[in-house]
Amino acid sequence: MPDDHTLEEAAEAILFAADEPVSASHIARIMADVTGHSEPSEDDIDAAIDRLNAAYEEHGRTFVVEAWAGGYRMVTRASFSSFAKAFYVEEQETNLSRSLMETLAVIAYRQPATRPEVDFVRGVNSDYAIRKLLKMDLASVEGRADSVGRPLLYGTTDRFLEQFGLDALDDLPTLREVEDLLDDPAFDDERAKLLQLDREEGISVDMIDAEGIDASDDEDSSG
């Protein structure tokens, strides 16, 4: 008898079988279809998911239900990732390159954004990066701008939200204030790579102090 089952049980069964995030409203609709009763509210579903998660926690299960891309997904806990990783050893996706990440960040925060807008922020041509993101289904074409030439408008996809563990665009981390960033010592790390490069290549550039960025530039300190 379907009506004997609780909302938690129904939601758990659906999420276990699903291979994409399932929204609360979708779960509610299925529940109404199966039981013939009126649809539970989304709040009811959310509460049922909370109870499920509490039960998993209590019984030390290795999975948890996360809210991603506007839906719920049953996922393994981070502390068990080494097992799952070992299982998928061949299929590990590589990290996204920095140029892809930058391009994606501009599109995510500025969407809908045109390619010239992205190029302008990054100071480089982003054509390749955008095409790559489209192919990876992290970005998509959202239409055309009204400006001259009617350039394409790009935005992020649900897949982007899911891949980055975000429920909605509102969950994007807030952009940090500039002053805050400039004072951050971590900001220097990448620059050091450039210095390293000069040293290894054996190219002498007078203005670069090969000892590192911490050494002060005594002959010419302005600003």
Binding site: E66, V75, R77, S81
Partner: peptide
């Protein structure tokens, strides 16, 4: 965002 993605990749889902 990279950090978020790394954290997200610690979780595995069905169909992966």
């Amino acid at each position: 965002l990279s950090t978020r993605r790394e954290r997200r990749r610690e979780h595995f889902v069905r169909g992966d």
